[in-house]
Design a protein around this nucleic acid. Structure first.
Length: 289
DNA sequence: ATAGGCGCCTGCTGGC
DNA sequence: TGCCAGCAGGCGCCTA
C-alpha cells in the first residue's frame, strides 16, 4: 500500500491523538514482522510519552523523547488509534495502551510485510536512515538535482521513480499516475529526457502527490488512515488499475505492462515512447483506427 | 550498473 | 460449487 500520501495521512491523523500520550502497556501477537522488534525493548517504551510523530519517505517516525519507534506499513499495514472498546481485529500485531484516556494505538498487518523498529536514541536512528540511502522528499528535490539524477542513468522512468534512493515516497500507484500526468511513457530512459520533459515530470510528481494527500490517499482494499477513515484518491486514478478503460485525455484504451517487476499502467497514445520528432519520420508503417 | 527473479505473507478474484 | 493460479500498494537479496 501505503505510499507517501497514505503515510502522510496516517501521520497527520495520529499526531493529535498521540502527542502527549504515554504508553502504559504493550502487547504483541508474537508473529514475526519484516524486521525483528525485540520484546526486550518493550520495557524501555512503557511509561514513555510521544513527543512527535513524523514521516520520512514511507517511514513513520515516533519520537518518545529518545527511544524512537519507526514503523513501515509494507503493503497492508494499518496504524490506528481507536477506543479500547473497539474489538481487536485479526492480524493485529501490536497494541499500545495509551494514558491518559481510553484509547489504544494498534498496528495491524495482514501480510506482515510491514515492520516496527526500536531505536534507543537519535544517532542509532540516523545511522539506519543513512544506511538506507533514502533520497530527498519530493518537495525537497530541486529540478536541477532531478535532472542530474535522470541524466546519469539509462534505467527506465518507472524504475527510477520507484527507487527510494532517488526520491523517497513514490510507489507503484503514484509512479504510474505521475508519468501519465507528465505524458511520458514508463519505458522512456532517464538519460534521454529533454529539459522540458524533466521539468514536466518533476511538476507532475508534486502535483499528483499533493492531490492525493488532499484526498487522504488511495484505499484500494486494505489502506485506512490513522483515524480509520479511508482515502478517496482511488476515484481519481487516470491509469492505475484502469487497463482497458478509456484514457481520460485521449480516450484510447489504457494499456498494461510488466516493468521493473511491477505492473505498469499507461496510455500508449498520449504517453509517447519516442521523441515526437522521430515519431513523425515517415516509415513503412500504417495506422488503422 | 541494471534487469530479472525470488521470497517474505495472506487474501481475493477470475477462469476452468 | 470448488479448486488453483495469479495477482496485490514494498523491499531486500541473489544471480546473470
Amino acid at each position: 500500500m501505503p505510499e507517501l500520501p497514505e503515510v502522510e495521512t496516517v501521520v497527520r491523523d495520529l499526531r493529535p491523538m498521540l502527542v502527549g500520550k504515554t504508553i502504559a502497556k504493550i502487547s504483541t501477537s508474537g508473529l514475526a514482522l519484516r524486521r525483528p522488534w525485540p520484546s526486550k525493548s518493550h520495557q524501555l517504551l512503557v511509561n514513555r510519552t510521544f513527543a512527535q510523530v513524523a514521516r520520512r519517505g514511507k517511514w513513520i517516525l515516533l519520537d518518545l523523547g529518545d527511544p524512537w519507534l519507526v514503523v513501515h506499513l509494507g503493503m497492508t499495514g494499518q496504524f490506528t488509534v481507536v477506543d479500547r472498546s473497539v474489538p481487536t481485529e485479526s492480524h493485529t500485531h501490536a497494541v499500545f495502551t495509551l494514558t491518559p484516556g481510553q484509547s489504544e494505538l494498534r498496528f495491524r498487518d495482514v501480510r506482515r510485510f510491514g515492520s516496527i523498529s526500536f531505536y534507543p536514541d537519535r544517532p542509532s536512528l540516523e545511522a539506519d536512515l543513512d544506511a538506507a540511502r533514502l533520497g530527498p522528499e519530493p518537495w525537497d528535490l530541486t529540478v536541477a538535482d532531478f535532472r542530474a539524477a535522470l541524466a546519469k542513468t539509462s534505467r527506465c522512468l518507472k524504475a527510477i521513480l520507484l527507487d527510494q534512493t532517488v526520491l523517497a515516497g513514490v510507489g507503484n500507484i503514484y509512479a504510474d499516475e505521475s508519468l501519465f500526468e507528465a505524458r511520458l511513457h514508463p519505458e522512456r530512459r532517464g538519460c534521454e529526457l529533454t529539459r522540458t520533459e524533466t521539468n514536466r515530470l518533476h511538476q507532475a510528481i508534486l502535483a499528483v502527490l499533493t492531490r492525493a494527500i488532499e484526498c487522504r490517499g488511495s484505499s484500494i482494499r486494505d489502506y485506512i488512515g490513522g483515524s480509520g477513515l479511508r482515502g478517496e484518491f482511488q476515484n481519481e486514478f487516470a491509469v492505475y488499475g484502469q487497463t482497458g478503460e478509456p484514457c481520460p485525455r485521449c480516450h484510447a484504451p489504457i494499456q498494461h505492462l510488466r516493468l521493473a517487476g511491477r505492473s505498469s499502467h499507461f496510455c500508449g497514445k498520449c504517453q509517447v515512447h519516442r521523441k515526437k520528432t522521430r515519431q513523425r519520420m515517415p516509415r513503412t508503417r500504417h495506422v488503422s483506427s
